[in-house]
Every structure is written in C-alpha cells, then in structure tokens.
Design a protein around this nucleic acid. Sequence first.
DNA 1: ACCCAGGGTCATA
DNA 2: TATGACCATGGG
Length: 233
Amino acid sequence: MSTREAQPLLSVYHALKKCHGPQYWWPAESPFEVMVGAVLTQNTAWTNVEKAVTNLKDSDCLDPGKIIALPVTELAGLIRPSGYFNIKAKRLRALCVWYIEQGAHSQLSQWNTTELRSALLAVHGVGPETADDILLYAFHRPVFVIDTYTRRIFSRLGIFRDDLPYEDLRLNFEQALPTDSVLFNEYHALLVSHGKDICRKQPRCNLCCLERICINPGFINRQSSGVKYEDFS
DNA sequence: ACCCAGGGTCATA
DNA sequence: TATGACCATGGG
C-alpha cells in the first residue's frame, strides 16, 4: 500500500486534489456572505442555502444592518428554503448583532485567532463548525474545519474514528499539517466535494480516488477510544 | 413514501 | 458528560 507515508493527511490531500481539482471556496461574494452561508448551511443541503441567499440578495437584505432591521418573522420568510427557518432567523440576527457591535470586519480582523474563535462560539447559534467556517473562509485564519464529510471519509480510511470530539479532530489536523490557511481552505473544500460523491450506507464503497490510501480497514472498529494517526504510521 | 443534507441548542439522567 | 428530541425545506 503506497500509503504508509510519513504524512497520511497530506497523501489524502494530494489524492483529492488530483481527483477533483481546485475548488475556489467558499462560494460567496463577500466575507459577510460567508458568515450568512455558514449559519444557513447547518445540517442543510447547499442548494437550499443558495435559494435563501438569493432571496436575501433580491430583497437587498444581505447586509448586517438590514438583517437586524427586519422583523424576525420576515427574515424567516426570506430564508425559508434553507430549512429550520425560525431557528436560523434568530441565529442570523444574533450573529449580525454581534458583528455590528464589534465593529464589523475591519475591527474583527485585528483580533487574534484564539479570541476571535471564542467570541464567535459565544454567539447564539454558532457552534464549532460554523465558527471555523467563518474563521477560515471569512477571516482567512488557519483553522481546520471538521464536518460530517471529514468524519465520514477519515473513518472509512481507518485514520480517525468518527466519534472523536470535534476539538480532538481539529487539533490532529492542525498539528499534522503545515499551518496554512490556503491549504486548509482547499482541503476542506475537497473533502466536501468528495463527500458529496461517496455512498453513505456501504462503509467502503466509492472511496474513489482514495481507495489506495486506505490505511487499515477495520482498525477503528476495534478501538474504544480516540486514535491518532501516529499510532499506526 | 421514504431518506437525508457542509449543526446547534436544550432538556433530561 | 452523554444521549435524545427538536428544528424544516427540497432533491433523490
């Protein structure tokens, strides 16, 4: 197996890149649109998010001040296609209130990554993945985003159990890879792109371009606790 | 008529 | 701290 390299995570990255090509992420026209998309895409297909974002644009409301000025029920109406619209309307509002209070992008971009991350996590409706989406794609900070595709792909590869805590997984990636926001950007985008292709039900079908890289199939099923890739490299 | 998607919060034990 | 219920539309 060509794949017991010193850096399995880089091998996976290169295989994905060769297979899927450059991704040009995040699909948005501004940092603020990234933030909106990050909330709207929570447990939701991106195609639905696009409709909601289009509604916001068409009504000239893709702006933090204008979103706050909207009654929550009206905001919910605009983002209806993205699902969970009542909840997401509140979350979007909370994020916009915070964003404006902190002086928007120009002020926030002066914060260091650690304090920006904990401030985001303190906003109602912003959890670890949403915060990291925003940090990476709106503020270009070297933070590795963990989502369901990341868990699914790496557990099938036998590299990480999919039930590792978010933070454990994130730190594993960040410590194993060079600290490079451009790399993290492309890597996560590739994981999503690949994740959309692979079959959910059958554990190892359609690993596609990653087939060669499968480190140790079945390994993770024998473990009761977290595994770092160094444990079997 | 299912199944599920680029999560997060809140209530229980 | 660890599960489970809940949120809801649109595409396969």
